[in-house]
Amino acid sequence: MSIPWADIGAVSTAGLSAIATWGAWLAARRSAKTAEAVARIERQRWHADLTPQFDISIERSESGRAALSIRLVGPLPLGRLDEIAVRIVSSDDMDRTARLPGGPTQEDLDAQVWGPCRFTHGADGADENGQTVAPFSLSVGTGRPFSIERTRPPHWQEGPDVERRWRDEWLNAPMRLVITCTREEFEPWVVPCDVEVPTAVRVRWLN
């Protein structure tokens, strides 16, 4: 019986070709994964480099209120933000979870601004509780003011000196903000900010 060397050679060649093809596919897949990882790292680095920078201050006004000035100051390559959403959050780190039967509900606790300042309801698209304003856009180098006022104690707190105790609680506390920024083709940025309340504004609100 003769050995079909030609057939064996053909099978061997086909096998080697298949191995080579598989090796090339595996190398291409690894290369694609490496390129994807590099691109992802580069996107993350670029996203971090473009984190919005704000100059935020509180200025006294003559109306008994004050103005919160928000300016987008950089970075220059960012150019603009399509939407900026500002929320006032608690000026302390207390856990305010409703636990006592008959006490304030979680909805009551969440609606209260726990800090020295809130947005003025009816101005700048502020919500009823003074926690947010209507979203807006800014280009780098521009800004806008927002009307703010002193917070009031929660409706469930009572006593003849409740106003004084409430003011004293937040006397040296900052106005704490969380700013969510979006721009087309980028993941959102979330920028927390602590804004000092100037002495002149505090003194005016104490009177």
Rank of each mutant, 00 (worst) to 15 (best):
D108M: 08
L109S: 06
L109K: 10
L109W: 08
A111R: 11
A111D: 07
Q112H: 12
Q112W: 13
Q112P: 08
V113L: 07
G115L: 02
G115A: 04
P116W: 09
P116G: 12
C117N: 01
R118F: 02
R118N: 05
R118K: 13
F119H: 15
T120W: 06
H121M: 10
G122T: 08
G122E: 12
A123D: 14
A123N: 11
D124W: 08
G125Q: 05
G125C: 07
A126Y: 02
A126D: 01
A126L: 02
D127H: 11
N129P: 00
G130V: 04
Q131Y: 00
Q131T: 05
Q131M: 10
T132S: 13
T132I: 10
V133P: 00
A134P: 00
P135C: 11
F136R: 13
S137W: 06
S137Q: 10
S137V: 08
L138I: 01
L138F: 05
L138S: 03
L138C: 06
V140L: 04
G141H: 06
T142N: 06
G143E: 06
G143S: 09
R144P: 01
R144W: 03
P145T: 04
F146N: 07
F146H: 10
F146G: 08
F146V: 11
F146R: 06
F146L: 12
S147H: 07
I148V: 13
E149N: 01
E149F: 00
R150C: 05
R150F: 00
R152G: 00
P153K: 01
P153C: 03
P153N: 03
P154T: 06
P154Q: 03
H155T: 02
W156C: 12
Q157R: 11
G159L: 03
P160I: 09
P160W: 02
P160T: 01
P160Y: 01
D161K: 08
V162D: 11
E163R: 14
R164V: 07
R164K: 11
W166R: 02
W166Q: 04
D168Y: 13
D168L: 14
E169D: 06
E169K: 09
W170D: 04
W170E: 02
W170K: 05
L171E: 14
A173G: 00
P174D: 09
P174N: 09
M175V: 04
M175D: 00
L177I: 08
V178F: 05
V178S: 10
T180L: 05
T180M: 10
C181N: 03
C181E: 07
C181K: 02
C181I: 04
C181M: 09
T182M: 04
R183C: 09
R183F: 04
E184S: 10
E184M: 07
E184A: 13
E185Q: 12
E185L: 14
E185C: 07
E187I: 08
P188C: 12
P188G: 12
W189E: 10
V190E: 12
V190N: 13
V190L: 15
V191Y: 12
V191L: 14
V191R: 07
C193S: 10
C193A: 12
V195F: 07
V195H: 02
E196H: 14
V197D: 07
V197F: 13
P198M: 03
T199C: 09
A200D: 14
V201A: 05
